[in-house]
Nucleic acid binder design. Sequence first.
DNA 1: TTGACATATATCGTCAGACGAAGTATCGTC
DNA 2: GACGATACTTCGTCTGACGATATATGTCAA
Lengths: 117, 117
Amino acid sequence: MFSSDLKRGSMDLFVLSALDGRSRHGYDIGKVLEVRSGGQLQLPVSTLYSTLYRMEDRGWIKGRWVEKGGERRRCFYTLTPAGQTALHTQRQEWAAFAAMVTLVIGAGHAGLGDVAE
Amino acid sequence: MFSSDLKRGSMDLFVLSALDGRSRHGYDIGKVLEVRSGGQLQLPVSTLYSTLYRMEDRGWIKGRWVEKGGERRRCFYTLTPAGQTALHTQRQEWAAFAAMVTLVIGAGHAGLGDVAE
DNA sequence: TTGACATATATCGTCAGACGAAGTATCGTC
DNA sequence: GACGATACTTCGTCTGACGATATATGTCAA
């Protein structure tokens, strides 16, 4: 749907957001993001899991294996305090970035009166 | 200012936007983007020129060398018809992506009543 | 009961692209 | 003539998204 390059800067934020307020296992994170986006955001599993492993390495999330009888084994991830901070920081950074992009690419620049004419 | 990963999906759009309505040389593109963003967007020259070369390879922009007497040599880039189309498409894609991200990462999901509870 | 499909995770290799570093060259100015 | 701004080039590195492939269990229908 959206290009890999576009997603590149937001993958962590997607996962962080999905884990805001409750723990989830990897597969569930993918599903939740798909639902929340109205089907627009479909993350390949390889992307999803590699993102999860990277984030756990960074200490933003913590995985916990659950193997209840009669159920598949799943790893439930939870935000660490560092992850909470990262979520907060990245939400703000994203808003600032989006505002900046809108400003820079806005159609209001074309034609006369341009910068450094 | 902003992370490389965040910029990754928007570099082409930045350059395309800078060339919307008039041709510019590489160094100028960098300066214009910096000014338009209020100093927030500072592109390393290596990033800027490699983006330009890639885009010319794709046929989105066309360079023309100008060597007027008493001036430095400069390559002025202009949008091709394909570049115009790409600009239009990418502006729309960016808006759609930003809306999707806002929807997905919005703070309105935390706590009760969540998806797939 | 078998076959298909959803659930659930792991690992590997490839590819694109942002960037730092280092280099070349011209122009103005102090 | 040294310095800083202008202007472009090339190379190597690193990160991260993704396709492919593998493994295994649960559910449901023919």
